[in-house]
Structure formats: structure tokens, C-alpha cells
Amino acid sequence: MRGIDGCPAGWIAVTIAAEGPLAPSVTITRDFADLTVGVEKIAVDMPIGLPDRAGPGGRGPESLVRPLLGERQSSVFSVPSRAAVEAEDYRECCRLALETSDPPRKVSKQAFFLFPKIREIDRLLRADPALVHRVHEVHPEVAFWRLNGETAVPEPKKVKSRPYPPGLAFRRALLVAAGFPEALLLAPPRGAGPDDLLDAAVNALVARRLLAGTARPFPDPPLRDAHGLPVAIWA
């Protein structure tokens, strides 16, 4: 089972056993397709399934999971329309987003910088429909919510004044309790941050639940976009 998160070097993946001891390993690669080989379930922190028009609060999954996260709600951004995501120029992206959203809204620079990764996964899944049954959208804060007894994690992951803020320590402790070696979680590989490693690790636990049939989708059942891709955040 594999949990994946975006990172400065491309993608960071944590692979664990399907059952029993986790036996985790960590990989970094530039190409997402490399990470789809040799595993039954993949849980990635990136939107899958894009709307033709964006409604209030996003596609649907976003508005369902935000109330679960307390002060961490802002970590869930609203996914704009497919036309906006496919635009490679920021001004054009904002123009298309305004035309295809209700109420009209532009796109933040932070969200825009994620779009190449969203496009990478979208094109891969549309080209190989068999992957749709193996690659699932997750959100780390929702995954930590479930790991924390369905309670929102009280501290943010990042605090500018702290090199390793309490929020990361809290999340790391949850993962250690779930079976991850603490030494592995304290040593992110070059090209990824400590938060990227923890997010990939908690996503891997969702991948294990997906295989076991115990993961929960928001919404249930998942929606579908115009290309038949599922639209749901799994936890």
C-alpha cells in the first residue's frame, strides 16, 4: 500500500505492507506514474475528478470534510473548474475560473502552483482507466482526523518561528502509535519536508484501509466528473 504527497522534488511515497507490521519504506520521484507500479492501492493528496463548473465550497468533498477539521478547515482548498486547472498561465486561469464558478471567484497563487500535479494525475488516469480502481484521493488532515479518533488535530503543521512545531510532533506521535518507526519519521529524504513525509505516511494508512474495505469516502457514494473519474476524499 502506498501513500503519496507532493513535495519540492516531485512526489514522496511511503509504502507499507497490506497487513501486519507496516515495514515502511520511503521513495521520492519526479514522475507520479513511477509510483503506480507494484502496489494494489494508492492514496494521494491531490484532487481527482474535476468539475466543469465550480459551486460554492468546491466540488462537494471539500464542503463535507471541512466541518470535521475545526481550525484546520483552511487546509482544504476549493477545486476550480477543469478549464481553470488546465490553464498554464495564471491570468488565463483566473479568467476561466471566474467564468466557470458560482459565485465567481479567482484562483490563489498557492492553488495555481498545484495544478501541474493535478494535471499529471488527471491525464494518467484518463489514459489508463484501470488505475482509477487503484489510485484514490485523500487529504492528510482528514486522514489524521480519523487516526486521531475522528477528532481534528488541534495544532497546525507549520509555524514559521518553530523548526519542528508542536503540530508536527503531535502527528508524528499518532503515526508512531499506529506502528511507524519514529526514526523513519524524523528523517525526511532530500527534496521533501518533514510535513511531506508525515502526510505521505498517514496517506499510506488510508491506502491500507482502502484494500481492507474500511476506508470511508466523502461523499458516500463518490460523485463522478464528466470523464467518469471519481470525486471523493477517502479517510
Score class of each variant (00 low, 15 high):
4 I>W: 11
6 G>T: 03
8 P>H: 01
11 W>C: 07
12 I>K: 02
12 I>V: 13
13 A>H: 04
15 T>S: 11
18 A>G: 14
19 E>H: 07
21 P>R: 03
23 A>P: 04
23 A>H: 14
25 S>I: 03
26 V>C: 09
27 T>Q: 14
27 T>F: 07
35 L>M: 10
38 G>E: 05
40 E>S: 15
47 P>E: 13
51 P>F: 02
59 R>P: 06
63 S>M: 13
66 R>D: 04
66 R>Q: 08
67 P>C: 08
74 S>A: 07
80 P>W: 13
82 R>H: 06
84 A>I: 09
85 V>F: 11
87 A>W: 07
95 R>S: 04
98 L>S: 10
100 T>P: 12
100 T>G: 01
104 P>V: 15
104 P>D: 08
108 S>P: 00
111 A>R: 02
112 F>K: 01
117 K>P: 00
119 R>M: 02
119 R>L: 04
122 D>I: 02
127 A>T: 05
128 D>P: 06
131 L>T: 02
134 R>Q: 00
139 H>G: 03
139 H>F: 01
142 V>R: 11
144 F>G: 04
146 R>Q: 10
147 L>Q: 07
148 N>G: 00
150 E>D: 14
151 T>C: 13
151 T>A: 14
153 V>P: 04
156 P>R: 03
159 V>P: 02
163 P>Y: 11
163 P>C: 10
169 A>N: 05
170 F>A: 11
173 A>R: 13
173 A>N: 14
174 L>G: 08
176 V>C: 12
178 A>Q: 00
179 G>N: 12
181 P>M: 08
181 P>N: 08
182 E>N: 12
185 L>H: 05
193 G>Q: 06
194 P>F: 06
197 L>Q: 12
198 L>N: 06
199 D>Q: 11
204 A>E: 10
206 V>A: 12
212 A>R: 14
218 F>H: 15
223 L>M: 14
228 G>Y: 14
232 A>Q: 10
